[in-house]
């Protein structure tokens, strides 16, 4: 089975998942992002790497935040950006996913940024656009499967603060079952050689056989937090707070919310990440979210540089 993300020369053709990407490719993306981080501090923030290219934001699932960061990244690369919120347009008129893609391909799109509620949808789009080798697909989050640019910006943030991956302990905490962010981060960490990746959560929010992703499982947050360098919190969706998975948000916070007391169990210089939007008082206490260990806002800044790196690398291949 060919890796659908790579072209015949082994270069990145699409970014669909962190899983299956060679370590060198991940490091190349992070290094390329370095060159864009400085750019955002300048008065003139644009570079002409994608001038004349059309980037389509295909959002089959709403997300203002992610769409905006992709839009900013594309515009700083001088691309033309077209935003399509598809769940409010053609598919509600009965047009199929692939018909939509065919139409946009015929408009000579150069890149599709795809967000979809179903795991694997970007793979299907990538397969479908094989006849257009200049067209690149970037997965901006598919179901529970992957959110590779988020995973990459998390890796970038970790590298920024911790410099090295080979000695780290990282804890991923909360609703791993439904989290594409967790999957992308975990694959990235294991690929880059992080020796100790932990997941912490109740059994109802951890997928079957999660250990096979190369992580250690903790149900007791106090034990799982001991001595970690990086704390990656996950968002708990509202609809999962009361039902068969969890009795209440309050009880979840009591067992798995990140409070200053629990954070004190980590290394003194530990950093706290969160992909946003945060549920304060559910998965994270405001004192931590706004505290000195939090790198949540720098994550957002790095996210733009990482997305610029991904788009410029794809456009060059």
């Amino acid at each position: 089975m060919n890796n659908p993300q790579l072209n015949a020369r082994g270069e990145l053709q699409h970014l669909l998942s962190v899983e299956g990407l060679p370590r060198e490719t991940l490091l190349h993306i992070l290094a390329t992002a370095d060159s864009f981080v400085g750019l955002t501090d300048r008065d003139v923030k644009k570079v002409p790497l994608l001038r004349g290219k059309s980037v389509f934001n295909l959002f089959f699932e709403n997300s203002t935040r992610t769409r905006t960061t992709f839009e900013i990244a594309a515009k700083r690369l001088s691309a033309d950006v077209i935003n399509l919120n598809i769940n409010t347009s053609s598919t509600s008129k009965g047009e199929s996913l692939l018909d939509t893609v065919d139409n946009l391909s015929a408009m000579h799109a150069d890149m599709f940024i795809v967000r979809h509620a179903s795991s694997g949808a970007p793979y299907q789009i990538a397969r479908h656009v094989t006849p257009h080798p200049h067209l690149h697909v970037v997965n901006a989050g598919d179901g529970r499967h992957a959110h590779p640019t988020q995973g990459l910006l998390d890796l970038y943030t970790i590298r920024h603060y911790k410099k090295e991956f080979s000695q780290l302990s990282v804890a991923v905490i909360g609703d791993v079952l439904h989290s594409r962010v967790a999957r992308s981060l975990i694959h990235g960490l294991t690929t880059l050689g992080v020796p100790d990746v932990r997941v912490i959560g109740p059994k109802t929010l951890l997928p079957a056989g999660v250990e096979q992703l190369g992580v250690k499982v903790f149900h007791d947050m106090n034990k799982g937090m001991a001595g970690v360098d990086v704390v990656a919190m996950l968002r708990l969706q509202n609809e999962r707070m009361n039902g068969p998975l969890l009795p209440s948000a309050q009880e979840f916070f009591k067992s798995y919310g990140l409070t200053p007391e629990k954070l004190a169990l980590a290394k003194p210089d530990a950093i706290v990440m969160h992909p946003g939007p945060m549920n304060r008082g559910v998965e994270i206490d405001s004192a931590v979210a706004d505290g000195p260990s939090s790198v949540i806002l720098p994550q957002v800044t790095f996210g733009i540089a990482v997305r610029m790196a991904v788009m410029s690398i794809l456009a060059g291949n």
Binding site: E19, P207, A208
Partner: peptide
């Protein structure tokens, strides 16, 4: 199947 592939691919599992 609620197993390693569903976990990796983020598919809802049937145990």
């Amino acid at each position: 199947h609620d197993g390693q592939v569903a976990t990796r691919l983020g598919l809802a599992g049937i145990p």
